Simulated assay, not measured.
Amino acid sequence: MKHTLAGLALVLTALAAHAQAVAPLPVAPVRTVTDTYHGVRIDDPYRYFENRHDPVVARWMKAHSAHAHAVLARIPGRQALLEKINRYDAATSERVAQITRVPGDLYFIERRGATDNQYKLSLRRGLNGADQLLVDPDQVEKKTGQPHAINWYRPSPDGARVAYGLSAQGSEAAVLHLLDTRTGKPLGRPVTRAEFGGVDWSPDGSMLVVNRLRAPRGGARATDKYQHSQVWLLRAGRPIAEAKPVFGTATKGVDIRPAEIPLVNFTHDGKWALGVVINGTQREMGLFIAPQAGCWPASRRGSGCCGRPTR
């Protein structure tokens, strides 16, 4: 035990020496903002750090980043270890992130080759068939000048269509895209604010549901967009303006708190719609069920989680 503690002390001493050898860190100034909640005053001395465009914040972050890199670079043997890791990493021909199989022996495959910057989405018809490239974020980057990544994807039950979320510059602010896998052409226009996805398709693949964040409002905080998100029912290829809300805080008979995330899934037999309510990282969730028959175009707008929801 004594030897272990002595070794740990030597390591900490060495790291401290490395840290002292680099430039001192800047101290962030205090700019206290006070809020009162239910009669209790809460002080926030660093709220201005939420504005990454603030020059003081930018300088502080860059200085701390440079300091961390300088400390790490001085660790003995680090560069040799990093080169070894990169060598082994480059030896991998490709990585497969997710495979989704749908009836008809269709395989949707998300993979990244050794020279690819991002995962690409392909469709394979038959286990030994050739791959059809569907979505290539590297090509999107060449067109837009911004790096993009696939956040999620969901094929229709027959594989004829696929919905996928695409975000730019690591933002994870996914935009919903629809693609006809037979022609390789997009369906309709992209739908913004689909960060959480939660996409599912009607049994015939003509309609889909998606969780959509609230539209930005003047004077609202950036985090307010995560409040009161709703599940919308959209006919594939039609404008989002024609979609109808089917599950969320505005649904009658459903108790969902503003920050909770509502999702909808359909059973494969076409009978039931399942409303799932997720509360952040908590393991507990709410579950509602309603007949699918109330979802489709003959139903009235805003009729709830498709039919009448039951918890």
Rank of each mutant, 00 (worst) to 15 (best):
T92P: 02
I256H: 02
H268M: 04
Y48L: 08
T223P: 00
T100C: 10
Y107L: 03
K225H: 05
Y48Q: 01
R95E: 05
G248Q: 01
P55I: 05
H67E: 13
Y37H: 12
G170S: 03
Q282A: 13
K252V: 15
A73V: 10
G104L: 01
R74W: 00
E284L: 09
W201I: 05
T267L: 10
G184S: 04
K2Q: 14
D138W: 04
V191Q: 12
K271Q: 15
Y226P: 01
T223I: 05
G307Q: 07
L208D: 03
A114W: 02
V254W: 01
V27W: 09
D105Q: 10
R52F: 09
G275L: 00
N117P: 07
R111N: 03
D131G: 07
A174P: 06
K143T: 09
T181D: 02
D158H: 10
A250V: 12
M207D: 15
Q230A: 09
A259C: 07
D35A: 08
T251M: 11
A23N: 12
G7V: 08
R217L: 00
H38P: 00
P137D: 11
R78Y: 10
T183R: 14
E242H: 15
T251V: 11
R238A: 15
R283F: 09
F49M: 10
D35N: 12
W272K: 08
P245R: 13
E94M: 08
A298G: 06
R161V: 00
D35H: 08
D105M: 10
T92G: 06
L25K: 06
E284W: 14
V33P: 05
A273D: 05
P26C: 05
A23F: 03
R235H: 14
A259P: 08
T181G: 02
D89W: 12
G170D: 02
V210C: 09
A91I: 05
G280R: 13
Y46R: 14
V254D: 01
V277S: 02
H268R: 08
